[in-house]
Simulated assay, not measured.
Amino acid sequence: MAKPNKKGPVRTVNVYCARCKTQLFKYRKGGKGALVKCFIERIVEDMTNAPCVCPGCEQQFARQTMIRGAPAYKMIGGKVHMK
């Protein structure tokens, strides 16, 4: 299968924890839909200490997986929001 573009989209969104409102990372997102998955190569700035765990409230917000041959975070519904 085809891999996602490394450069990817230009639009950057901030991803926050839904419970404690801590910023998790800045992400180059394509399209205008909900945030379902985040390709790791598109993350611009990562504020987490451990992968997929919020540094503020220690809640798991995603699961690591492989999507189209590239490592990604699959978001758990309702755990994150973006601006």
Rank of each mutant, 00 (worst) to 15 (best):
M1A: 15
M1V: 09
M1G: 10
K3P: 02
N5A: 08
K6A: 10
K6P: 09
K7H: 08
P9D: 12
P9A: 14
V10K: 13
R11N: 12
T12F: 12
T12R: 08
V13I: 15
V13L: 08
N14D: 12
V15G: 00
Y16F: 14
Y16H: 08
C17F: 07
C17R: 06
A18R: 09
A18N: 12
R19M: 02
C20E: 08
T22E: 09
T22L: 05
T22Y: 04
Q23G: 07
Q23A: 11
L24H: 02
L24T: 01
L24V: 10
F25W: 09
F25G: 01
K26R: 15
K26N: 09
K26A: 08
Y27V: 02
Y27H: 13
R28P: 01
R28G: 02
K29M: 08
G31L: 13
G31E: 14
K32A: 15
K32F: 13
G33E: 14
G33I: 06
A34S: 12
A34D: 15
A34F: 03
L35S: 06
L35A: 08
V36E: 10
V36F: 11
K37Q: 09
K37N: 11
K37C: 07
C38N: 03
C38S: 14
F39A: 09
I40N: 04
I40G: 00
I40H: 05
E41H: 08
E41M: 04
E41F: 05
R42S: 03
R42E: 05
V44W: 12
V44M: 10
V44H: 11
E45P: 01
D46V: 04
M47F: 10
M47H: 13
M47Y: 13
T48C: 14
N49D: 15
N49I: 14
A50N: 11
A50S: 15
P51K: 14
P51A: 14
P51I: 03
P51F: 07
C52N: 15
C52G: 15
C52S: 10
C52Y: 07
C52F: 13
V53T: 07
V53C: 06
V53F: 05
V53W: 02
V53Y: 01
C54D: 02
P55E: 03
P55Q: 06
G56R: 06
C57T: 12
E58N: 09
E58D: 14
E58M: 12
Q59S: 13
Q60T: 15
F61V: 05
F61I: 07
A62M: 10
Q64H: 07
Q64T: 05
Q64V: 14
T65N: 05
T65K: 08
T65E: 07
M66D: 09
M66G: 00
I67L: 11
I67C: 04
R68C: 07
G69H: 05
G69M: 03
G69S: 01
A70S: 03
A70W: 00
A70N: 03
A70H: 07
P71M: 11
P71N: 00
A72T: 03
A72Q: 02
K74L: 09
K74H: 05
M75H: 05
I76Y: 04
G77T: 01
G78D: 04
G78W: 15
G78V: 04
K79I: 02
K79G: 00
V80L: 10
H81Y: 09
M82E: 14
M82R: 13
M82F: 08
K83Y: 14
